[in-house]
Amino acid sequence: MIVCVAVVGHQNNPLYIQSFTEADDALKLHHIVHCSLDVVDERVNNPRKSGPTLNETFLGLLYPTENYKVYGYLTNTKVKFIMVTTDLDVRDADVRNFFRRFHAAYVDAVSNPFHVPGKKITSKTFAESVSTIVKSFGFSSAI
């Protein structure tokens, strides 16, 4: 299950962050998302190490914590997508698919003429579409 998704801007500032847990660990998830930005920086700055993921938007598993797995995605405009999941066994294809749909939703949201680039995303439509994507995570491959 996806517990948190985030869109992070150029200055590593959160543009959109949403957790999907009933439990009161949103703060913890925020910390996890924030910490994972270090890994994104590391991968972007040292592309040599990442080998096969060179030139790919999908950054793969960023870092495993005790209970979560954090995946990252970097758009070509250097906006970062972070996803935290509790599933310990996740297929890469599912995550890629998720990020692709998430990216599409993001593009729709920032295409809004009233959206100022670099500012937080406050669109309700975006929030709704994100929650739909999150809910369908894992099932999409079955369909």
Binding site: V39, E42, R43, K49, S50, G51, P52, T53, G60, L61, L62, Y63, P64, D89, R91, D92
Partner: peptide
Amino acid sequence: SIPALGLGTGNKPLTEWE
């Protein structure tokens, strides 16, 4: 020598911090 990432064990790749 931190080996190339992504070459870890199949579906469970190792990450930098490990």
